[in-house]
Design a protein around this nucleic acid. Structure first.
Length: 164
DNA sequence: GCCAACGTTGGC
DNA sequence: GCCAACGTTGGC
């Protein structure tokens, strides 16, 4: 058996404050594609650099501003590469400690797949037996790049189809 | 706007 | 290597 050579599809949830970058920003981007830049947390960085692969599916989550929740889905179109905003003194994400020869921060490119007709809010997530236990629902969970299970992915897709 | 939870920094 | 202080996140 060579079953371990089969790549499992991977699912993620990326968080963003919509005032900084929202799903509508992504929808208006050329080819509905944009770099997911500005991640400045080591655990999230490790995921972007090492784990997120082209073809992986991603939920777009709006944090901080109501309504809080999952607004749609994206797909990874470019795997981890150095986050160039860290090298730009004019960027709000500038980090002088990130050396271009040994970059500290990484990003990926995402493409919008679907904006849900209605967001799947935290209230809706909390009402579902499976979605309720997602990482994003845990108190104090600040990680902005989170793994999602296949079951959670399916559960949220179901919730997105239910009338608001 | 508040503030608990969390991650990072830096003095020792 | 510890841990107090600090800055940030993000739900409420």
């Amino acid at each position: 058996m060579k079953s371990q050579t089969i790549e499992k599809p991977k699912f993620w949830l990326f968080k963003s404050e919509p005032s900084a970058f929202s799903i509508d920003h992504l929808a208006r981007s050329a080819k509905k594609t944009a770099p997911w830049d500005g991640v400045r947390n080591y655990q999230a960085r490790n995921s972007l650099r090492d784990d997120v692969q082209v073809g992986d599916f991603v939920f777009f989550y709006h944090s901080r501003e109501e309504p809080l929740g999952i607004f749609g889905t994206m797909q990874i179109v470019r795997a981890g590469y150095p986050d160039f905003t860290a090298f730009d003194p004019k960027s709000k994400y500038y980090d002088p400690k990130s050396d271009p020869d040994n970059p500290r921060w990484y990003m990926v490119d995402v493409k919008l797949v679907e904006k849900f007709p209605e967001p799947v809010t935290r209230d809706k997530l909390a009402s579902d037996d499976i979605a309720r236990s997602m990482l994003v629902m845990k108190r104090g969970m600040r990680l902005s790049i989170q793994p999602v299970t296949q079951e959670e992915w399916n559960a949220v897709q179901q919730l997105a189809k239910v009338e608001a």
